[in-house]
Design a protein around this nucleic acid. Structure first.
Length: 264
DNA sequence: AACTCACGCAACCGCTTCAGG
DNA sequence: CCCTGAAGCGGTTGCGTGAGT
């Protein structure tokens, strides 16, 4: 790749993640959540940019990610959704709990594109990514990730419950309305499309019942904690034991807080 | 055994959107 | 209203690995 780095900051590590880095990232998010991706790597003592951390978490480390081969049902779902939504991978991922947009994108390009048939090639080029300017005008709920933003995430929730808010039902339905606008079937009124799409969703996708019945408006979500300060790291170190202590000692050393602490 | 090639996955980059100042 | 920073998305690419020769 001859592109310039996304983060101008030099010294940041790139390339494949090590097990050690994974552990640090997981442990940090488990404890503090991921309210601020930009600040996260520094606070966790990782030599990565926030973007990289987010990607690693979203695509690989999230606890609810389903691993292994795609089932026939999943593949059929992807094909159906792609036919309807085009290359809107995050919207498609919303219909496949436990699967990431990146994974779906890869599977599509390597397997499903062929299975989907020769017509898909032309369809794909027609739809490709719908004009985002059309999507934009519909308001803040248009896009899946916008819905995700509505849910402020507490540490525990971010780890176990909401870490995959892009795959919950609320996001899924938001993604549908998004798609109805984004795909924009010639001159169909948006209201009609929405109705059709919701029915389509209920009929064609086997959604998890609990997820489907979840109402995010009733959830009590405490505000995310403030980022840990140097002293917080130290407190965690002193109040931890065993492996935890090793972990926080390492975090302190990596983030340079140890030297800073010695001056306090 | 050595080499080549194709495939699949993980990660990166640029762009877009949105929220807040 | 404009500007800026942060987050998220989709396209693209690099690299590891296994199959074939």
């Amino acid at each position: 790749m001859v592109r310039s780095p996304c983060c101008a900051k030099m010294g940041l590590k790139k390339g494949p993640w090590t097990t050690e880095e994974d552990q640090i990232l997981v442990a940090y998010i488990k404890r503090y959540g991921h309210a601020n991706w930009r600040a996260l790597p520094k606070q966790a003592g990782l030599l990565r940019c926030g973007k990289s951390c987010r990607l690693r978490w979203m695509n690989y480390l999230r606890p609810d990610i389903k691993r292994g081969n795609f089932t026939k049902e999943e593949q059929e779902t992807i094909i159906r959704l792609h036919e309807r939504l085009g290359n809107r991978w995050s919207a498609i991922a919303a219909g496949l709990p436990g699967r990431t947009d990146n994974e779906i994108k890869n599977v599509w390009h390597t397997h499903l594109k062929k299975l989907a048939g020769p017509n898909m090639a032309s369809k794909e080029s027609q739809r490709k990514t719908p004009d985002r300017s059309m999507v934009k005008k519909k308001g803040s709920l248009d896009r899946g990730h916008d819905t995700a933003r509505l849910v402020s995430v507490s540490p525990e929730q971010s780890y176990s419950d909401f870490s995959s808010c892009a795959t919950d039902s609320s996001t899924a339905s938001a993604a549908i309305s998004d798609c109805t606008v984004g795909v924009k079937e010639e001159s169909c009124p948006a209201e009609d499309l929405q109705e059709i799409d919701e029915r389509f969703w209920l009929e064609t996708l086997s959604m998890d019942d609990s997820a489907a019945s979840m109402d995010i408006t009733t959830l009590e979500i405490p505000p995310p904690p403030p980022p840990p300060a140097v002293t917080d790291h130290f407190n965690l170190l002193t109040s931890s034991n065993g492996d935890d202590m090793d972990f926080w000692m390492e975090v302190l050393m990596r983030s340079g807080d140890l030297q800073e602490l010695s001056q306090i």
